[in-house]
Design a binder for these strands. Structure first.
Length: 489
DNA sequence: TTTTGAGTTGTTCGA
DNA sequence: GTCGAACAACTCAAA
């Protein structure tokens, strides 16, 4: 029998929706929950005393444009985004007082650094009689949920994904609310301008290359996904490894900012009917799976960004070498594929996955520089910097990670270049001073005859550096260093 | 509890 | 140029 029922009383009051790492209007459970109230109050807080590591410069740049995109989207749904600076523990209760809100909603963020503050806030609000509810969405799974048969968390990717994939229920993504009602007092609420937050670089403004490469924001994320599924999904499994072609999804920074969710991606992948083979689809799903795995690892080992997962590496004889670190950061190591990668990172805020492994191996094994130096550089320069993927990947390459590469796996930057960038397209694009080198020598200009160098306009040590270290020597030295911690244990 | 198969992404050497 | 073996054993996850 039908029963006429009024809305629950709390829906007659406004609700706050606190945006964090979920800068989207679609598939946003917190926003949908707020939209059922009489009015919705979207707020973003620049956390000046954040318990987590501050965003790197590239992600701050991204945040500016992503917020301005979100702001416009919310405005067109009916209400503006309130922007505040300070401590959410003060600002949220203050906003409740000013608006008469009865509820606060947010989507969970999984950085362990935020966990106690977020749950304390939630408990405090509930204690004071307010509704405080958090929702899933950033990941396909709750990252502490999966357990092995013996009750531990997974440390190897394959069994992790075997356990997770069949278990992932692809829920249909939520549509954006059709409209949002502004709260009565909206015009009297304090808000800050994005510009006053100085998220964009000024002196100097290095962001030109980022702006050319990316369109931050939810609309940009969906364009990127559509283009990927239409143009780049076919052949993905093989082509994704070739840095000289545009073959990857380009979704990582959009995922990092929460402009799109993995559920939306999986759903779109399921519904797309192009010629991509099952192998292409499987490969791409597994890449999304790697992101889940990284969060699984970080959630179960919150020290992952700072501490060797394998404690043996605490005794690893890292070298301090400021000059070598700078050469690596600037892309002046004398190894073309390494330099191309580091310059792509600097110019565009992103680096191809294959090349990330090469440059990371070079830093940790050729230069014997602590992986944490590389991790922080990536944190500052990557538009897709993510505490889980960044830490897990660096530890994987360094050999200190959970299911790390074996210590004797030392990438040869010349072979890697020749194998994955055979025509030197990638190097030519990002190391223009080598553009005229013939492919035969583009990954090892020092081996080219003088006449070839002359013709290409390359003067080693002048227009392009000599290798800062000899590969064979570096390899031997790295093996000896790894031997040392093995013997010590 | 013990056993067993498996484990993202490589390089070098020698035939 | 190509191929297989060695690198060096270890940890994980499941049966």
């Amino acid at each position: 029998m039908l029963r006429m029922e009024r809305d629950p009383p709390h829906l007659q009051d406004p609700a706050i929706v606190w945006f964090r790492n979920d800068l989207r209007t679609e598939d946003n459970a917190a926003l949908v929950a707020a939209s059922h109230h009489s009015a919705a109050i979207p707020v973003f807080i620049r956390e000046t005393n954040s318990p987590a590591r501050p965003l790197g410069a590239a992600r701050a740049w991204w945040l500016h444009y992503s917020l301005s995109s979100l702001s416009r989207a919310l405005e067109s749904l009916g209400t503006p985004l309130i922007q505040l600076s300070g401590d959410p523990a003060d600002l949220i209760p203050d906003l409740i007082r000013k608006t008469g809100a009865s509820a606060v909603y947010w989507n969970r963020r999984y950085d362990p650094a935020f966990q106690s503050a977020d749950s304390a806030l939630k408990a405090g609000l509930q204690r004071d009689g307010f509704i405080a509810e958090s929702f899933a969405g950033q990941l396909l799974h709750e990252p502490t949920r999966l357990r092995t048969g013996s009750g531990t968390h997974y440390k190897v990717y394959s069994p992790f994904w075997r356990a997770l994939e069949p278990d992932v229920e692809i829920r249909p993504p939520l549509p954006a609310p059709e409209s949002l009602t502004p709260v009565d007092t909206i015009s009297s609420l304090p808000t800050e301008t994005l510009d006053s937050w100085h998220l964009l670089p000024t002196k100097p403004d290095w962001s030109g290359g980022l702006a050319e490469a990316w369109i931050p924001g939810e609309a940009g994320a969906h364009d990127q996904l559509t283009d990927f599924l239409e143009d780049r999904m076919q052949g993905y499994a093989d082509r994704r490894d070739i840095p000289g072609v545009d073959a990857t999804s380009g979704l990582s920074p959009h995922l990092a900012a929460g402009e799109i969710t993995p559920a939306q991606i999986f759903e779109a992948l399921k519904n797309t009917g192009n010629d991509a083979s099952p192998a292409d689809r499987t490969k791409f799903r597994k890449e999304i799976g790697w992101r889940e795995f990284a969060w699984h690892l970080l959630s179960n080992d919150p020290a992952l960004p700072d501490k060797n997962h394998n404690a043996k590496f605490d005794k690893f004889p890292w070298l301090s070498n400021a000059a070598a670190l700078t050469a690596w950061q600037k892309g002046l190591t004398g190894y073309p594929v390494v330099d191309a990668g580091m310059r792509q990172l600097w110019q565009t805020g992103w680096m191809h996955n294959r090349v990330r492994m090469i440059v990371a191996s070079f830093l940790t094994k050729h230069l014997l520089i602590d992986w944490r130096e590389g991790e922080s550089w990536f944190w500052d320069t990557l538009v897709d910097a993510d505490p889980a993927s960044n830490a897990a990947s660096w530890q994987w390459v360094a050999g200190s990670g959970a299911d790390a590469a074996p210590y004797f796996r030392i990438f040869n930057p010349v072979l890697q270049g020749e194998k994955f960038d055979p025509d030197g397209d990638y190097v030519r694009r990002f190391v223009p001073e080598l553009a005229k080198m013939p492919s035969k020598f583009i990954h090892k200009p020092w081996a080219a005859p003088d006449a070839v160098l002359d013709t290409a306009g390359v003067r080693l040590g002048d227009t392009y550096p000599h290798p800062i270290i000899d590969h064979k020597l570096a390899r031997t030295r790295a093996l000896a260093a790894y031997q040392q911690i093995k013997d010590a244990a």
